[in-house]
């Protein structure tokens, strides 16, 4: 049985993420153990790692750094051992080089890019980008297998004012249209991030989580 750990660093709706992962695993008949932990040694040993996150980039970065040894454990598991990693919302943004929310904060630097304010072309569009939107893949990714995307596809739940602007366009896997393209999903090798909340996205979310639990990058 595999072990998926959701990192508890004081940010995010861990309870619902935990339950959504359990539900997705059960529905897909995957014998995966889902645990929530703040312990670096648990993360270092995990088969899959999930980094959730809501709030401001700097606060989340600070929360992660406050856990002694956590970043090293994440690097050991994700970078050295190549374990599948999923960042959600600010957890995805933390994968970037820098966050430019309020002030410049260094990210994990796993995917080259900056976290910048979204700037819809239509000034009447509200910020945050809040609610259900479809996503359009810009390439192929295992996490989107079997999920109906595009204008007539399933919707994902977004709530954010910033997004990742990737240095390399090929790191962007999917975008959402909100007065222009908004980065919805990024990936590099065994790492993937979603700006939307799969744990709040009903059918699309549960399917994507199941794909993550099956993913063998």
């Amino acid at each position: 049985m595999g072990k998926t750990v959701i990192i508890d660093y004081g940010s995010g709706n861990l309870h619902s993420a935990h339950k959504a992962f359990e539900r997705a695993a059960a529905e897909a008949k995957l014998k995966e153990q889902i645990i929530v932990s703040a312990k670096p040694e648990v993360v270092a040993e995990a088969d899959r790692i999930v980094l959730p996150g809501v709030g401001a980039f700097k606060d989340c970065r600070g929360g992660l750094m406050a856990l002694d040894g956590m970043e090293e454990a994440m690097r050991a598991a994700v970078i050295s051992k190549g374990r599948p990693f999923l960042g959600i919302c600010v957890g995805m943004q933390l994968m970037a080089t820098r966050g430019l929310e309020h002030e410049t904060t260094k990210g994990l630097g796993w995917i080259a890019g900056d976290v910048k304010p979204i700037a819809p072309k239509d000034p009447a569009l509200k910020i945050p980008h809040m609610g259900w939107n479809t996503i359009t893949p810009t390439g192929q990714h295992a996490l989107l297998d079997g999920i109906k995307t595009g204008d007539t596809g399933l919707n994902a739940y977004f709530v954010h004012s910033y997004h990742v602007e990737c240095t390399l366009p090929e790191d962007v896997v999917a975008t959402a249209d909100y007065g222009g393209p908004v980065t919805a999903m990024i990936a590099y090798e065994n790492m993937v991030g979603t700006q939307f909340h799969p744990e709040k996205s009903q059918a699309l979310g549960l399917a994507l989580i199941a794909n993550f639990l099956r993913w063998k990058p």
Partner: peptide, 8 residues
């Protein structure tokens, strides 16, 4: 509710 509903 959060255990049963995966919506905001």
């Amino acid at each position: 509710t959060a255990e049963a509903c995966f919506m905001p």
